[in-house]
Design a protein around this nucleic acid. Structure first.
Lengths: 259, 259
DNA sequence: AAGTGGTCTAGACCACTCG
DNA sequence: GAGTGGTCTAGACCACTTT
């Protein structure tokens, strides 16, 4: 196995933190490459002369930092970093739609990874208070809901839920799982809702258990939340899109004018 | 203590997850208010008839989600949510500087909390490759570094490091801990660098141990990273500001034109 | 079958907080 | 001193993966 040091009994840190520190160093220095297997719990017990729970606690530290992922029956592995998706502030520019590409596809082309969308679900519900407020609808109005999951190189990186007023989406391809070239924004513009601007609210938090499952991430990996509202040239809110992204896979770029 | 259910032996989830789930429900429903103490480990052992490590593992789940914070010798408490700072995309508008307010102060006034800045440190170093690239300087050029920590209601919420080319900052109040009314952006404009635009890169990750200390947060709380570059009307990069924010304390707002 | 991690038990001693 | 969480031990049985 990888050569690690020994526990220093004079070190004020408890043994499990020392072990975690040595493993962390090995990961950060590249001695343990992304995808490599950590020493097994049994190996750590023998190497450091500790009980199993102590070895596990050391690994637990690294899990909490998102550095490693355990795989039942196989071992604990150094987390391979997903490809970073840089989202430029022009990602919803009309020229991408005119070229027949939805925003996600346009950006995948540029960054050079294989995009994918699955689990598309269309439904209708009454708007929650929050959604109604953002769409400036009376609370309780019916809205179209588009749920989907985005993949990069086959790995889930984002789940998104769009809400549109029924009055706008009714009878359009927006109600279809595949809304056609350019995505739903192209369809909105065809329906006369020429888009003027978007407003985005960005936050970050730990994922809920449901989100962990959908995004296939363990605990210790935060998510970025982006709530986007699209407005047409008449300043009508035509869509609210609620997205949850695997944080390490994203960098969001924005341009802010000084005035 | 708070009344919780019992473990369901037919539930496929292990006992510790069931216990964590019940505590999570109690927190989300408000039965356990922010700041309230969770049942002690001894109480959980008795209530559910489990061993101590099982009770601890349940609490560990909630720690990983950032829902609770343990305090040695006192108990485990429901994390009080810090006041959320909504950062509007106009927070660097000139009118705020003209009113003599730095961006942080202007926004605190609006949101109604007590702002604060401490640990201001000024130094000079040679630019790292990344910083030099952002400032479009030759690698190895000297830069002015402004380090500081921001507080809201006395609690740390953000650490920020600004880098400015020496050629721009040399001999100006920007080298002082307190650069005067309107902050360093006001001084830059007085020096002829009228600001035209900012570019921001937003990401999120788990904090390093150093950042955890500086921001006084435990593990389980993610941070938002924002790297802002300021450009003047001649498209000269005049400042790069690297910030690390306590994620639950922030919501960033951006306006994106459709074209 | 052997090796891995996942869960659990029943204890122990320690450090910290509070009355 | 009593109550709290922090750390550790030495076992046990289970579920999953690989050979």
């Amino acid at each position: 196995m990888v050569q690690l040091g020994d526990i220093d009994r004079s070190d004020p840190r408890p043994p499990y933190q020392q072990i975690a520190g040595m493993l962390r160093s090995a990961i950060e220095s590249g001695t343990l490459e992304p995808g490599a297997r950590l020493p097994s719990e049994a190996a750590l017990m023998e190497n450091f002369g500790v009980a199993r729970m102590t070895a596990r606690q050391a690994i637990q530290e690294l899990r909490g930092e998102g550095l490693v992922i355990p795989e039942h029956g196989r071992g604990v592995f150094v987390r391979p970093m997903p490809p970073v998706r840089r989202l430029a502030s022009d990602r919803f520019a009309r020229r991408h739609r005119d070229a027949g590409k939805a925003a996600f596809i346009a950006e995948a082309d540029k960054a050079g990874y294989q995009p994918g969308v699955d689990r598309i679900e269309i439904s209708r519900t009454t708007a929650t208070e929050t959604i109604a407020e953002r769409l400036r609808l009376p609370a309780g109005d019916e809205v179209l809901v588009r749920d989907r999951r985005y993949l990069a190189n086959g790995r889930p990186v984002e789940v998104a839920t769009s809400y549109l007023p029924i009055a706008i989406a009714d009878g359009t391809p927006i109600e279809e799982p595949d809304p056609g070239p350019g995505g739903i924004y192209a369809r909105l513009e065809e329906a006369g809702h020429t888009l003027a601007r978007f407003s985005e609210e960005v936050g970050a938090r730990m994922p809920t258990p449901d989100e962990r499952t959908a995004l296939e991430i363990g605990p210790g990996i935060p998510v970025l939340t982006v709530v986007r509202t699209a407005y047409d040239v008449n300043d009508l809110a035509v869509e609210v899109c609620d997205t949850v992204k695997v944080a390490p896979a994203y960098l969001l770029e924005y341009d802010v004018p000084a005035q």
